[in-house]
Design a protein around this nucleic acid. Structure first.
Lengths: 234, 234
DNA sequence: CCAAAAGTGTTAGGCTTACACCCATGC
DNA sequence: GCATGGGTGTAAGCCTAACACTTTTGG
């Protein structure tokens, strides 16, 4: 193929991943951060990222970064924003395209995380990050809040089986506010997207709470019939 | 400055602008398209775009493209999405970051448009576009629909003075559906963002319709008090 | 039997929708 | 005086928000 643009100026293009996870026990939304392994800013806290390679799509690069860090594929991944200020990276001109991913921390291999010197940090206690990574995180977080209201993506952050209490705790952690228990349950149950299991979670209470399961197929079916997911509840 | 990333592979990075305009007379949402002036795809319909230059931010590049085409500055411009498939551009690997702009067509110099061989085309009759530009347009259009519901950006597409009929026509053109006249008026008036002028528009009817003016300052004030714009009305 | 967490209904009010006629004016 | 487009109000129903007690069971 002729390269029509051969004489034009090229730039470094990167991807950065804002990887969200959730811990059921401490009810906190987490971020997977790394200590940077190259100059500049060696050893500083950073979002996992990498440069887009030849023959690799931007989304592909983001998925590769995530895979190399976590060993996970088929993860919920959404493009967030492009960051193109001239001096945003002190190591040279780099344009980055941020993405956010939602992962189920229970699927994660702790050995792999350890090896890549990645660490989960609570969203409310993020260490100082390099460059404009804090802004990137904030934007992704706002996007997550918007998204989880109108798309059933919360389940990506939970194990296959979860209780309604756990689901509500997750929403409260993301919204950073409390939600009325009865209103929340009424709304999510009325959507008919969950299946109640016969099994109970008995670790956190004597009575135990019934497990539920999200059924993606039902969501797809309802959506085709004009149904809109909405869990923006007080 | 040391270029820490000197050995890494670089890419061409472009911006493309989805420029929306609105014509009050034919009540149609328009797109400013150009006939491409270089290879490949010379002479084909395309979004206005350009490559990001050294020392220029991505947003700066988008604004430059818009300025060179229209002579306009201080235009509503929002980043839309990055497009990074390997073979999206047949002329070589180009990653593009699309933006959408809202312009008041009445501010436009027709001579300038003519000179740049740009043309307004109705959103409902878009010619075949190069590469993935149709997808880019569709995404920007969906974003515009979402945005205009919850942010008073519609006024960017209208002249300073406009009637409520014209405003409703604009919303109908963007939503691609009819809106109940009384409900629409009730809602926009109750927001208290418009000032009714003493003047009437008398071209389209004998009775004439009062002009209104959007007051951005009021929006800023109300927003600070927790007000949310919403014109998602039936 | 008691502590701790799960689970459950109802009501008031606000917001959305649906809907039809009068008004002003130029010709 | 009539045709044309501008302008106006109300009622029903739905959805949201607020709110407190009962159930279960392990220790």
């Amino acid at each position: 193929m002729i390269d029509h643009y051969a004489v034009l100026e090229k730039n470094l293009i990167a991807v950065d991943c804002v990887i969200f996870g959730y811990n059921i026990s401490d009810k906190e939304l987490k971020l997977l951060l790394i200590k940077r392994k190259f100059e500049p800013e060696y050893g500083k806290w950073s979002l996992p990222g990498g440069f887009v390679k030849r023959g690799e799509s931007v989304l592909g690069a983001a998925c590769r970064v995530l895979y190399q860090l976590t060993g996970l594929k088929d993860v919920y991944m959404e493009q967030s924003s492009a960051w193109g200020d001239v001096n945003r990276d002190t190591g040279g001109r780099v344009i980055t395209i941020s993405h956010f991913a939602l992962i189920n921390t229970y699927k994660l291999d702790p050995v792999m995380i350890e090896a890549s010197s990645a660490h989960w940090r609570s969203i409310s206690r993020i260490p100082k990050l390099i460059f404009d990574h804090k802004k990137i995180v904030d934007k992704a977080h706002r996007q997550l809040i918007d998204r989880i209201k109108v798309k059933p993506v919360g389940f990506e952050l939970l194990p296959e089986k979860f209780t309604l209490v756990q689901l509500q705790d997750l929403y409260e952690a993301i919204y950073q506010r409390t939600i009325d228990k009865r209103n929340f349950r009424k709304k999510i149950i009325s959507m008919n997207l969950l299946e109640k299991l016969d099994e109970k979670e008995k670790e956190t209470s004597k009575k135990g709470a019934f497990y539920y399961r999200f059924i993606p197929q039902r969501y797809e079916d309802f959506k085709r019939q004009g149904f809109y997911f909405n869990l923006d509840v007080q």
